[in-house]
Design a protein around this nucleic acid. Structure first.
Lengths: 314, 314
DNA sequence: CCTTTTATGCTCATATGGAGCATGATAGGA
DNA sequence: TCCTATCATGCTCCATATGAGCATAAAAGG
């Protein structure tokens, strides 16, 4: 049985082929925390994500990641989730070297000091300034809007112009369309294709670049986290043992990059019975003191059972 | 800088270490179709998922997968999605051999005949009989219910008994809890842990086993697909160009493993403007003839913009 | 003509999400 | 001391989405 040109068939006669090619495998970690209302990410010198090789000694991919991250941050990684695996040709490190990179998203709380040289927490929006829409007056930077529009307008044929136009409009919430925070990855990819980010040779876009495709991986993590936060109680991994609903809301807003309706946010959290009062109150500087709450870990198991969205018959 | 025991640090001084270990990488494909109301999966001799090596010639992981699957099925893989990457120690093929496996989910329509020897389409529920709840009277097989209950009851201490008990109840919809079709993976994993599947040495559970961890990967795919089908119009990848709403519903029911409320299903599909009439009608054997519809591909881009679930402020 | 079967149209009650009014509690001045 | 700015909390109102059925239409087969 013949398979497509590149690889030989492995569908049936598995014995009749040469030993499979060996390549290197590495793990890349996007470790996120929220500190005082600011989303933070663990970096190396502010330009690379922590990464490490995967070796035979490791029990599993996740075990490997957990091991060195916990050693690194001295904080248990409560929530760890596999993000995506890349092996694009342009990621080849040295000549012809092929690497498979498995990326993970981890949630934790910021440790006081990054022990190792170069290891530091950075504001996530340093890399994606356009993703922070918490300021109600925030709009897409003119440089970006301009660059995107001309990219769409410069397409060779009408069909492509239309495609790029709607793609930009949907991703960036232009032409009256709503802003969708979950499209963080599409936005970064569109900026790349439009040649607006430094990694793609552009200079127009604001935001710090990172090595290799690390900024893309970071965008993947942001998009995933923004989606997940809506149907799984993962924010709590980022909170201290006791917190006020205001702080909880601030953490969600930090990640979502948008403002939420305060009263409705409380209603949501309370009616889902995600939290319970500790009994204490905060001694904030201003305003009425807020009650302290703690996360009800018990709901974790149940909360997987969310909405159905399908018209079931009972 | 020292990192956790196993791997040497790669967080900072990256130059000062031995060349990273080389391992083999492979792709595993879960190709799904729905034929006459039955969910189908492409297999090798009914006991293995198609898999192939990843080689340097490939542009990317997805490109590699697409290439050989399309060659194999002679059908374009409309929808392809990365599922998960495994490298568990117990997956080691030969002695000490470490393999990283990247699994993908692909949706297509069943080709007339699997050209290659051994390649065949199988009913998905052959591997997970307990996942098909389309028959309203279907209940969990007594063997399973019994096995799960004794596993929970046989736990050494009370705490563990309680944990297993609620876990089983949630996953399998026992003790008055609702059945959640999306928990397909948790169910398979629970059966494994309870030692009820052949792969784990058990004999109690019905359902055909597969080689290695392929049945687990299949369960991962089923769970992912059942979740996705609710907020993305992916079913259409499985439908012919023109179809009736009844057929569309049957396809969704085949994947979800449950019956849907017919009138509400139509309302959902129509109000979301996912389809448009072709003008024709079917000549079915019984009942009133149904109008034919086609999928409105234009909505694909937009439909990413779904519900917010967060109390935004405008 | 009557029964069975699948397709379609519509209605009604309830749940959920979006907005905003009103009041309670504190800190910091004027 | 009183007024204001700031948050925290309680509640109400409304539009829409979702869950359940009732009723009718349009075929095939006795």
């Amino acid at each position: 049985m013949a398979l497509p040109p590149p690889p030989d068939s492995h569908l049936a006669d598995r014995g009749a082929e040469p030993a499979p090619e060996r390549i290197a495998a590495e793990l890349i970690a996007v470790i996120v925390a929220v500190t005082e209302g600011a989303p933070r990410v663990l970096t190396l010198a502010g330009a690379a994500l922590p990464s490490g090789p995967f070796a035979s000694e490791h029990r599993s991919l996740q075990a490997a990641l957990r091991a060195w991250v916990e050693h690194q941050t001295h904080h248990p990684l409560g929530y760890v989730e596999q993000l995506y695996t890349f092996a694009d040709r342009d990621r080849a490190a040295e000549a012809g070297e092929r690497v498979v990179s498995v990326s993970y998203l981890g949630l934790t709380r910021e440790a006081r000091a990054a022990a190792q040289a170069g290891v530091s927490w950075q504001d996530l929006y340093r890399y994606f300034p356009w993703e922070d829409r918490r300021d109600p007056h925030a709009a897409l930077a003119p440089v970006l809007a301009q660059g995107l529009r001309s990219w769409a307008g410069d397409a060779p044929d009408a069909m492509l112009r239309w495609e790029r136009g709607t793609r930009v409009a949907i991703a960036f919430g232009l032409d009256g369309r709503p802003w969708n925070e979950e499209l963080a990855l599409q936005r970064y990819e569109t900026l790349w294709e439009a040649g607006l980010v430094p990694e793609a040779g552009g200079t127009a876009a604001p935001g710090e670049p990172m090595v290799h495709d690390h900024r893309r991986i970071l965008a993947t993590a942001l998009a995933r986290l923004r989606g997940k936060i809506k149907y799984r109680p993962v924010v709590f991994e980022l909170m201290p043992p006791a917190f006020t609903l205001g702080q909880l809301q601030a953490a969600v807003e930090a990640l979502a990059g948008r403002r939420l309706h305060k009263q409705n946010f409380r209603r949501l959290v309370e009616q889902q019975e995600l939290v319970e009062e500790t009994g204490g109150v905060t001694a904030e500087t201003r305003g009425r003191p807020a009650r302290l709450f703690r996360f009800r870990r018990e709901v974790m198991a149940e909360r997987a059972v969310s909405g159905s969205k399908l018209p079931l018959v009972r």
